[in-house]
Computed example of a mutant assay.
Amino acid sequence: MSDVVLSAGIRSNLLSIQNTAKLLDQTQNRLATGLKVNGAVDNPTSFFTAQGLNNRARDLNTLLDSMDRAVQTLEAADEGIKGVIKLIENAKATATQALTAKIIPSSVSSTTTGLVATQNASQITGIDAQDSFTIQVGTAAAVTINIANSTQALSAIIASIAAVANVTAYLTSDGKLKIEATNGEDLQITDVSGSTGNDLAIAGTFTNGVNRNSFESDFNALRTQMDQLVADASYQGVNLLQANNDLTVFFNESQTSSLTINSKLVDTSTNGLSISEITAKSWATDGNIRGAIDELDGAIANLRQLASTFGGNLSVVQTREDFTENLVNTLETGAANLTLADTNEEGANLLALQTRQSLGTTALSLASQADQNVLQLF
């Protein structure tokens, strides 16, 4: 180009066309990308400011994931608490039913009538010296009752029978010997030596009583389910209802703002619930059942207090999550304002530049005609 000599008019029009083409490329690039600042060359201040805003927005978006995880973990713990409370209420209903279910002793009465406490063994048909029989209540060990000698009074024999745990013995108004298993368990009387039991028609197994054993087993089964439900109330491996599962949630990218959600050990053997296992036959006493109900009421109170604490934590996390989402939107909007192109404006620019390019081409043609006039001189 430098070896070719152009007239001033042609050179001026050529430069104008070149500038217009450059602006057309820039405008078309902005329309294609939607950005007026595509790199640091376009506008260093706007580019790096927008980059900083977008970087912070990305960091906060990462924190939003951990906040959502904390929300789900808290909700899992809350569902666990609700489930345990329902099981406790079922256990309380079981205990209440046991309390209202009156125990009916298993019993047997002798067929012999007219017995008197002062009679001795030799005066009662079927009772002989050195006879012995066993009395067993439920699964307890059998206890042997011995007829010491022929002069042993019936009252002494009755006292020996009544000394067996959960057994009472007495003479009825018509003089029959009546033996009862007071806790409602099965009563079994078996002759060992002699035939005292058979002769008095008191030998055998008697299941005519009512006990609370089924309520005890049902209660213990519910207690086991409580612990199992608590163990399942986890989210991504974090269970706030078990020990050493504290969860820390960070709210800003520099980790200077955070909330630590403390886990609480909840099981039937600790102060989280403190629900004692019911030992066999302990509910034969109403006071023991009422004690179990008191423990259940205390467990519900503890769980409601824990649910309130977790609810407060959940409110904080959700508030910060909403705030962070809005802040991310603000940062991304600010970055967009610095870099996004106005497509309406760029469209108008493209139309104007295309018109200018056409005019420039026409002007260049006119300028070249002046040089072509020289040819007419030859």
Rank of each mutant, 00 (worst) to 15 (best):
R223H: 04
S66M: 04
R304G: 08
A156S: 12
T207V: 07
Q28C: 01
T285Y: 04
E346Y: 06
V41N: 11
Q242V: 14
T100L: 13
T172N: 04
L331H: 06
Q130L: 12
D42S: 08
L23R: 04
T94K: 01
L296V: 03
A336G: 14
T168N: 13
D199C: 05
K178A: 09
T361A: 01
T112G: 10
E295P: 05
L60V: 08
T355I: 02
I88W: 04
A301E: 14
S263A: 14
N61E: 14
E325R: 13
T205H: 07
T125S: 12
A203K: 09
D342V: 05
Q225T: 13
S132I: 08
Q130V: 09
T248F: 12
F47G: 09
N344M: 02
D25G: 05
L15N: 05
V328K: 03
E75H: 03
S217E: 11
S234M: 12
L6A: 00
D371Y: 00
N326F: 02
S109G: 12
V249H: 12
A284Y: 12
G347N: 05
A76I: 05
T139V: 11
S160D: 15
L340K: 15
D131R: 00
T96G: 12
A336L: 07
N55C: 08
R58L: 14
E332L: 03
S358L: 02
D186W: 02
D78H: 03
D191F: 03
T20A: 02
A117F: 03
R56C: 07
D68Q: 06
T73A: 10
T339P: 11
G298M: 03
R223T: 03
Q369M: 02
S195C: 00
A117H: 03
